[in-house]
Design a binder for these strands. Structure first.
Length: 804
DNA sequence: AGTTACGGCC
């Protein structure tokens, strides 16, 4: 085998085992090309020379030195410092010993203080002092001090010392100033293995795996250095980062050839690498073959199962760890295990881990708390998640992301947006993960202006070309009422996947433009994209909103026969909406009875809406009973039923429901509508009088109401009216928020542009019919987005075909 | 007397 190895500069790989054979690598020039060339040019020209020893031969005979050393080496810094204060301190050696002690005990600030004190007392820092001080700057993330120390050591001519330069490389890499690390590396006259290793691990620590691997190869091929365990561990970390199994296997081969496949840390890194590259099977085989397992190795394997969506194996691995090796689970075990419980929504085991962590004193712990937030979020316990978030003494971007995702996953969109707003006041900037989590919340509740803002931030982050993000944007623009922009983003998208198509089909669906959805579906098939289950959710939603009953049935039937997709519960839900539209309640009821899946609250919800449209209170009561047995806090259900009772004047039942809601502690969602003008958002409640132009708005509303011939109850409240009339007046639709918002929109939004209103709850029938008339008499397009869809009112008609 | 190090959260 005489191939050149891209990563391992070594020859004969001889081994009989399968795994080892797998590993014997083939050349892959693409990988070399993929790694962009970040490594300093001079690295390729200067060859490492033998290390120039710079060992101080000074003798250290000051009294107490021996004791000082042993105190420091034993870690008793108290004693060391006490002794130090009583010593003569003319020799840098004693200072170095103390600074080293402080640094290795994590007292970085104090170490830096001693460095300054030393200079103040006239003792010159020597070549041994600087690595300790630089390490202290690294540990305390102190860039300013680091720079000062760096310029000082250049002045006194220590910038050629290999130990000092190596420390500087690590410092700059840890401070994420990789360019400075590269410059130190580049300007070194002599580099040793540690210099290279520091550069490699530096690239890994900032997430630049390919640069690390490139560096790893350069070290071997151009300089002829053999990687040691440090280089190997870092290089494996780089493979994990990039998920490159091929490179990982090559390095595995190298470890076997170099003989440090028996190194415990290397073994752990290998297991980790295989799980991160998606090969739990390789990791497992390696893991099983190791006889001396450390807690770190067990944790790596448990975490590997979690990562690869194998929660049960992860849990089994924990049990084996407890039985076989009697290891005590540590904080990392807990952290590795939690994603498993999160995945399967296993609240109880998750809580057990939480309790265990509390008993063990693991908390507070940034990463553990974040993992708990994630677990509680995925188990539907947003309140628990928030409680942990609130109590955290320290938070990073990941914790924020986890909390935001917890809100979004559970439909708490407004809370998610509020938290996202708070995030801007924190010292870290939202990243791609944050955006990915928050975009669905923007789609559900944000205004177009806010959506545009987040879009421009996405452009600034340079993640707009990501198919995943673009798909979310398509849906978000559609949900915010801007179908045109949604379409433009879709059209510009270079790599359209099935989700892109699903999104754009859904975009037209929620605006009631069914023909466009159907057209896109056939275009999609022409492009050779295979529809999936979600495609049919989009399509059937489109058919239901646009009232395309026949097409709906056709698609529903073709799912199984033509595409081999079994209809899921969402598909049955869409069909029920379609049936509901056709006013055939009998069929709707039968459809539920005969469907092969257990009806969910959403299914009964469809029946409830259908009953409401057909004014069938008995069926509505049945649907409501089922909904409330599944979701006792479904306020929408109470309200709908109560409205139905009110419409027929059954006030006792209205009261009964009101009492039920009060007893349950559920509050009716107060309806509001928002409209934008000139970059400002205007929010209206029912009967809103708070707006600066209130009288003008109400004037417009009066005129409009007259024009569309509605009776007016507003502003003439008198004391002695029959009860139901008073009730009716208090809820009179003329001053429903949406009406006020439309009126404000009519006078503020420039002519020619549609009036865009967003509403948090379903638009009521009276307002719907009024909006149609308004569009007719004013000749303007009014678009009202409610949680389900966007009603396009044009020339007296609505895109929903009067069923919503 | 000094420099590099495995497993963790979205």
């Amino acid at each position: 085998m005489s191939t050149t190895f891209p990563l391992c500069y070594s020859h004969n790989a001889g081994s009989s085992e399968n795994l080892r054979r797998d590993i014997s690598a083939k050349t892959d020039h693409n990988h070399a090309l993929a790694m962009n060339q970040r490594v300093p040019k001079s690295a390729r020209t200067i060859r490492t020379q033998s290390k120039i020893a710079k060992i101080s031969t000074r003798r250290h005979n000051l009294p107490g030195t021996r004791d000082l050393l042993s105190y420091v080496n034993l870690g008793s810094m108290q004693d060391a410092l006490h002794l130090f204060e009583n010593m003569r301190k003319c020799d840098p050696f004693v200072w170095n010993v103390v600074i080293r002690g402080l640094t290795s005990n994590g007292n970085y600030e104090e170490a830096i203080d001693f460095y300054y004190r030393m200079q103040f007392e006239g003792v010159r820092a020597d070549n041994f002092t600087y690595p300790f001080v630089i390490k202290a700057c690294t540990g305390s993330f102190c860039f300013i001090e680091g720079q000062k120390v760096h310029s000082k050591l250049v002045k006194v001519g220590f910038d050629l010392d290999i130990y000092i330069c190596n420390s500087l490389i690590v410092m700059y890499a840890k401070l994420r100033l990789i360019e400075l690390a590269e410059r130190v590396f580049e300007e070194m006259p002599v580099r040793d293995l540690v210099s290279w290793n520091s550069m490699i691990s530096g690239y890994v620590s900032i997430g630049e795996g390919w640069n690390a691997l490139f560096c790893f190869r350069e070290m071997q091929e151009l300089v002829g250095l053999r990687p040691d365990r440090f280089s190997t561990i870092s290089a494996l970390g780089a493979c994990s980062l990039e998920g490159t199994l091929r490179c990982g296997k090559e390095i595995h081969g190298l470890t076997i050839r170099s003989g440090f496949e028996w190194d415990v840390m290397v073994q752990t890194s290998l297991v980790d690498m295989y799980t991160k590259c998606g090969r739990v099977d390789y990791a497992e085989r390696l893991f099983e073959s190791l006889s001396n397992k450390s807690i770190v190795l067990w944790n790596a394997m448990i975490g590997g199962y979690s990562l690869n969506g194998k929660p049960l194996e992860s849990f089994a691995c924990l049990k084996k760890m407890l039985e076989d090796d009697n290891f005590n689970p540590d904080v990392i075990t807990a952290i590795s295990l939690l994603p498993s419980f999160a995945q399967i929504g296993a609240l109880l085991p998750g809580k057990t881990i939480h309790g265990f962590a509390i008993r063990k004193g693991f908390l507070p712990h940034l990463v553990l708390e974040t993992a708990l937030i994630d677990m509680y979020g995925k188990c539907g316990k947003v309140k628990f998640a928030r409680k942990i978030f609130n109590h955290m003494s320290e938070r990073n971007l990941v914790s924020w992301n986890a909390m935001i995702a917890a809100y979004v996953q559970n439909g708490h969109n407004s809370e998610a947006l509020e938290l996202f707003q708070d995030l801007w006041r924190e010292p870290f900037n939202p990243g791609a993960t944050t955006i990915t989590s928050i975009l669905p919340a923007y789609a559900e509740v944000a205004l177009l202006r806010e959506g545009k803002q987040i879009h421009s931030y996405i452009t600034k982050l340079n993640i707009g070309s990501s198919t995943f993000i673009s798909n979310s944007l398509v849906y978000m623009y559609a949900k915010c009422g801007d179908l045109q922009t949604a379409r433009e983003i879709f059209d510009r998208l270079l790599n359209k996947d099935v989700i892109s198509w699903n999104s754009v089909i859904m975009a037209y669906a929620i605006h009631g433009f069914g023909e466009n959805s159907v057209k896109l579906f056939s275009e999609m098939r022409e492009e050779g994209i295979k529809p999936n289950a979600s495609t049919f959710v989009s399509l059937l939603t489109s058919c239901s909103i646009a009232g395309m009953t026949e097409e709906g049935w056709e698609y529903f039937n073709s799912m199984k026969t033509d595409y081999g997709i079994d209809p899921g519960i969402e598909h049955y839900g869409c069909m029920l909406d379609i049936i509901g539209r056709s006013r055939n309640l009998e069929l709707a009821k039968r459809f539920i009875d005969e469907m092969p899946l257990v009806p969910t609250a959403r299914i009964w919800g469809s029946l409830l809406v259908a009953s409401r449209h057909n004014r069938n209170i008995e069926l509505a009561e049945l649907a409501a009973k089922h909904i409330l047995s599944l979701e006792h806090d479904n306020t929408g259900c109470y309200v709908l039923l109560s409205n139905m009772y009110a419409e027929v004047g059954r006030w006792e039942d209205v009261e009964r429901i009101k009492r039920l809601m009060n007893n349950g502690g559920f509050e009716r969602n107060t309806g509001y509508s928002t409209v934008e003008n000139n970059g400002k958002t205007y929010k209206f409640n029912n009967l809103d009088m708070s707006h600066i132009n209130t009288s003008l708005i109400y004037d417009v509303m009066y005129i409009i109401s007259k024009k569309i011939r509605e009776d007016i109850y507003v502003h003439n409240v008198t004391k002695f009216r029959p009860l139901d009339v008073i009730r009716k007046r208090l809820t009179s639709p003329e001053c429903h928020s949406v009406r006020l918002a439309i009126c404000f929109g009519l006078i503020s939004v420039s002519l020619g542009s549609p009036v865009l209103v967003r509403k948090n709850i379903r638009i009521c029938e009276a307002c719907h019919s009024a909006a149609k008339k308004i569009s007719e008499v004013t000749g303007r397009e009014v678009v009202v987005g409610d949680p389900k869809m966007h009603h396009h009112f044009r020339n007296g008609r609505c895109s929903c075909g009067d069923y919503w």
